[in-house]
């Protein structure tokens, strides 16, 4: 009979140690001379521009659906006029950044994990290292920074489009002028809603980039490990986003809303 093994703590600590070491390598290489500006711009394009459509459509539909779902309930309380404000606050504070970050985890983290994983498996990263070049600076630093910059921008764009989607949703069930709708939507918002949301997205972006790079860079074995790297990058990045969101909500309620 096969014995059930107890969880190996040494492996867990080893994994944590590897992640800390990877993080310190990342930080050291940000400040090293010869920063790869061109590659950073290319990665911003790959991560930001290539996710633009997906994120835009998702954001728009998010606001549209929220509005359509809320109107019947709000009608019962005679509070339909609060829908624009409710949509804008909930999208900007919580739903927008989290949904867009999870979407980016699926698209970007898996892409980075698979790309670096296949580079590792086909010895391209080793070739870079052996030639005296710095693969961490070229591959890792640029991708993590690009994610950290692009995810908040995508998130803000999606928030804006969600409010637009809400306007279209309102006009399906009745006529609302654009001026009235956007006035109501923005009136409900405060600076304290926008800033924590952007800061939160910065951390989400960092988590997506870091996890994608870590999983890809440390994959080993055959082609199977490329799939494993991509898959575990998505799972870990999504988990990190949820955990970071919980922490961010707690900190925001302590420091901003109180």
């Amino acid at each position: 009979m096969e014995q059930i093994k107890s969880p190996s703590w040494s492996k867990t600590f080893e994994e944590v140690g590897n992640q800390v070491s990877f993080m310190s390598g990342f930080i050291r290489n940000i400040f090293r001379t010869g920063f790869e500006w061109n590659e950073l711009v290319r990665q911003c394009y790959m991560i930001g521009y290539n996710s633009f459509k997906l994120v835009g459509i998702t954001g728009f539909i998010l606001g549209f659906v929220m509005t359509l779902q809320s109107i019947p309930t709000m009608k019962v309380f005679g509070a339909v006029s609060f829908v624009p404000g409710m949509v804008s606050v909930s999208v900007i504070r919580e739903i927008g950044p989290v949904i867009i970050a999870l979407l980016c985890a699926g698209k970007v983290a898996s892409g980075i994990g698979a790309e670096l994983g296949s580079m590792k498996v086909t010895e391209q990263i080793d070739a870079m290292e052996v030639s005296g070049a710095n693969p961490v600076q070229y591959l890792v630093v640029t991708r993590i920074i690009a994610c950290t910059l692009m995810v908040p921008l995508l998130s803000v764009m999606a928030d804006g489009l969600a409010i637009c989607g809400g306007y279209f949703g309102s006009n399906i069930s009745g006529h609302v002028t654009a001026v009235l709708y956007f006035n109501k939507a923005f009136h409900a918002l405060a600076f304290g809603d926008l800033l924590p949301s952007v800061i939160k997205s910065v951390f989400f972006g960092f988590a997506i980039g870091f996890v994608g790079c870590y999983k890809g860079y440390n994959s080993n074995g055959g082609t199977e490990s490329v799939g494993v790297a991509a898959n575990s990058a998505v799972v870990s990045a999504s988990l990190w986003i949820i955990v970071l969101d919980a922490v961010a909500v707690q900190l925001t309620s302590i420091f901003v809303y109180n």
Partner: peptide, 28 residues
């Protein structure tokens, strides 16, 4: 000072042949 030729050639997939050869010159 050491050149290492990998079994597969280990060319960088995302770059042209020109960029592959230029890579160590510009980076190293």
């Amino acid at each position: 000072k050491i050149g290492f030729l990998f079994q597969s050639g280990a060319l960088y997939d995302s770059m042209t042949v020109r960029d592959n050869l230029a890579f160590p010159l510009t980076r190293v």
